[in-house]
Design a protein around this nucleic acid. Structure first.
Length: 426
RNA sequence: GGAGAGGUGGCCGAGCUGGCUGAAGGCGCUCGCCUGCUAAGCGAGUAUAGGGGCAAAACCUCUAUCCAGGGUUCGAAUCCCUGCCUCUCCGCCA
């Protein structure tokens, strides 16, 4: 959410930002409504003052034994006028709020302006793309032959897009999650959170999923709750409506969660196997920091995420998203993509975003620099570190051998009881 | 799911027979004084948001806020209704 005052004072910049992001948003309507709002506030507040004064007089008259009936009658009229104006005012404020919530965050100055993914900028690449001297298999075939992934039965239990991990596949998934959590906790100073996987409307609004992405989320009607699309939602909302003290900041949380996405209307391309699923696992890092530090933390977050891939020795590249490819709430975002030898392309395994105060304003997360200082909005950032589904694709495909086995990266072996290779059972 | 209790400022905690109560008192914190030595005492201050005054800050002023939303009333933290949340007991379940 952008500050109403900011929209009022920088309407041109906001319009440009909306265009650059390829979003919708009616700035002029907001400006018109805001003007009316302020006019109404002025009227209704002076009436309220009058009413308050009258009420005090009534009290005084009664104490003195004077007749207050005339005064009471005239005050009654004032109250009726107030009620009318108040309801008009809240009507307008609701309209403003609706419009305001639809305005995306502004892209940061270091975000390249562009239309779509083709305007994204590659920042760097790490590791060499592997060359194989045999015919490689894709992760689906590998998973099936090794009997570690079962997409078919997942379809039976739930529907397509709900993969089942089996045997060493399940253990490998668990190993990846534990490995990533341990690195972030032990080396990057994170506090681990195990959050709820279901969140309410206020939380979904706080991080910016609502209202725009309602159709993309699983929803439980009876309880008016949403299955989380990312741990970012519950973890960021941990501090909703709070004022943090300066010594609490920066807050660094890391959380594992299952992530649920309906991916409505995305059938067809790129839906094979793990490439697009409705449920996947992700380790997510969330930072709450002072505004002036947020871009330093953004770079640090990127390093913390890529370190995982370097330890796993999986080639990746970092992409700086252009304005048009940026999500609604982000001001700047790096995507980390890992290499899939079978697909012959890069797969997004992580998004590392700086939301500045956009989420903080929606979720009302503030901090005080010192006692007595005015509360300010924090800056929130988050980054996947990482999503295991795409990571699993790259891991299986990059570490496959001509025998159809999978070499386990050394850093993961302690998590797999020392196992160094996954072999076929038959 | 059934029965009951409750949600007040950074925290604790009054008020809840409606009227200078934005809210006693305590703790914490900040500043000052005194005193001086791991302490105590004294004084002052200590919410947030919005509107207006202003180019802006400081400041002044008004309005709102005692979980949220409605209602009653000249006037509500105080009365009524609805919702949310917390706690206790019972039931059910992992």
């Amino acid at each position: 959410m952008l500050d109403l005052k900011f929209i009022r004072e920088h309407s041109q910049a906001v319009k440009q930002g909306i265009l650059a992001k390829g979003e919708m948003g009616d700035v002029d309507l907001i400006l018109t409504l805001d003007e009316e709002r302020r006019k109404l506030i002025h009227q209704v507040e002076s009436l309220k003052k009058e009413r308050n004064d009258h009420s005090k007089l009534v009290s005084k008259y009664k104490k003195e034994g004077k007749d207050a009936s005339e005064l009471i009658q005239s005050t009654k009229d004032i109250s009726i006028r107030i009620k009318k104006l108040d309801s008009r005012l809240s009507d307008i404020e609701e309209k403003i709020f609706t419009q305001q919530s639809k305005i995306p965050n502004m892209p940061h100055e270091s975000t390249p302006i562009g239309k779509d993914a083709s305007d994204n900028v590659e920042v760097r690449q790490w590791g060499d793309i592997p060359v194989f001297d045999f015919d490689i298999l894709d992760h689906l075939e590998l998973g099936e032959r090794l009997d570690i992934l079962d997409f078919k039965r997942g379809g039976k239990v739930t529907g397509s897009g709900f993969p089942v991990y089996k045997g060493m596949g399940a253990r490998l998934e668990r190993a990846l999650i534990n490995f990533m959590l341990d690195i972030h906790v032990d080396r990057h100073g994170y506090t681990e959170i195990f959050p709820p996987f279901v969140a309410n409307r206020a939380s979904m609004f706080g991080t910016g999923q609502l209202p725009k992405l309602e159709e993309d989320m699983y929803y439980t009607k009876k309880d008016d709750l949403f299955l989380i699309p990312t741990a970012e939602v519950p973890v960021t909302n941990l501090h909703r409506d709070e004022i943090l003290t300066a010594d609490q900041i920066p807050v660094k949380y890391v959380a594992y969660s299952a992530c649920f996405r309906r991916e409505a209307g995305s059938y067809g391309k790129e839906t094979r196997g793990f490439l697009r699923v409705h449920q996947f696992n992700k380790v997510e890092m969330v930072n709450f920091v002072k505004p002036e530090d947020s871009y330093d933390f953004h770079e640090q977050l990127l390093r913390e995420a890529t370190e995982i891939l370097e330890l796993l020795e999986i080639p990746y590249r970092v992409i700086l998203l252009c304005s048009g490819d940026l999500s609604f709430a982000a001001a700047k975002c790096y995507d980390i993509e890992t290499w899939s030898p079978a697909e012959g392309k890069w797969l997004e395994a992580s998004s590392v975003s700086n939301f500045e105060d956009f989420q903080a304003r929606r979720a009302n997360i503030r901090f005080r620099r010192e006692r007595g200082a005015k509360p300010e909005f924090v800056h929130t950032l988050n980054g996947s570190g990482l999503a295991t589904s795409r990571l699993m694709v790259s891991l299986l495909e990059n570490y496959q051998t001509d025998e159809g086995t999978i070499i386990i990266p050394p850093v993961l072996r302690p998590y797999l009881g020392g196992l160094d290779v996954i072999k076929r059972k038959y």
